[in-house]
Nucleic acid binder design. Sequence first.
DNA 1: TTAATAAAAGACTTTTTTATCTTTTATTAA
DNA 2: TTAATAAAAGATAAAAAAGTCTTTTATTAA
Lengths: 143, 143
Amino acid sequence: MLSKTCEYAIRALLFIAQKTKDGSKTGIKEIAKGIDSPEHFIAKILQDLGRKGFVLSLKGPTGGFYHDKKSLNRSLAEIVKEVDGDKLFTGCGLGLKQCSESRPCPIHHEFKKIREDMQEMLQKTSLGDLSEGLFNRLTYLKR
Amino acid sequence: MLSKTCEYAIRALLFIAQKTKDGSKTGIKEIAKGIDSPEHFIAKILQDLGRKGFVLSLKGPTGGFYHDKKSLNRSLAEIVKEVDGDKLFTGCGLGLKQCSESRPCPIHHEFKKIREDMQEMLQKTSLGDLSEGLFNRLTYLKR
DNA sequence: TTAATAAAAGACTTTTTTATCTTTTATTAA
DNA sequence: TTAATAAAAGATAAAAAAGTCTTTTATTAA
């Protein structure tokens, strides 16, 4: 469904969001432990997400990753689209290049419905929204 | 969503189902053309599907791939599960190993709904069902 | 029974994804 | 201003997925 990269990305951003709510920044090592991901791999991913405005960072002592209001309001859909592209939202279920209402693949209509549900769900969910559940220990980011 | 292998698998089986309805067998070359896939790759995939009972085949002149009643009634869900495993039906949206009702990831409940819709859709759809639309030129398998 | 046909099998290559390691740059506190 | 810290950047490696090529085996029609 989502690539490993995208799964790690969302988990890391949620971990950071949670820390931001605590009023603190967090470093690569803490993040990697907190979401159970390879350290260097998540570092790479976060560099990318930083460039794209999904997270902020500061080098040096007391540095680390954190969110501002704006980046906390980004939706999961935006993250997925940036990391994995929009194939999940618009691609054909059977991999056809030109699958459409007027030239549908055999599962076009049923599949479209599910794609749209997925997109809607991801669109209406922001990092900030989900960090609530984490903060209150109702949801988890590892294992 | 589905692997390339699985997309080709379903398309090839549908192509064969359609030919079966015509009362004829079909060969690798014709299949590869008919679904716009790499010839040797789909050959490999069909060998696999043959072992697993999703299609029948006969070597030699007048040979080729075809379906019987039973293989025509296999659901898309069965194919997906055999080719890609059941991660699509049971896996966590954020890649956690133990994501469950009692220890949910942040998107567990919303995601579960979508997974289940997907599974239901694929379960109630058989190769035979979809070959109708192809036969009547209402749906397509290439481009 | 033999030549032609078509799938089965297996080895191999390429591409993409995932992951790791090392060096550089920026920031801060002492 | 310097030593310590932490992210950024870049190079490399390993694993998985996708795709290709060659040889073998089974079947059939002549």
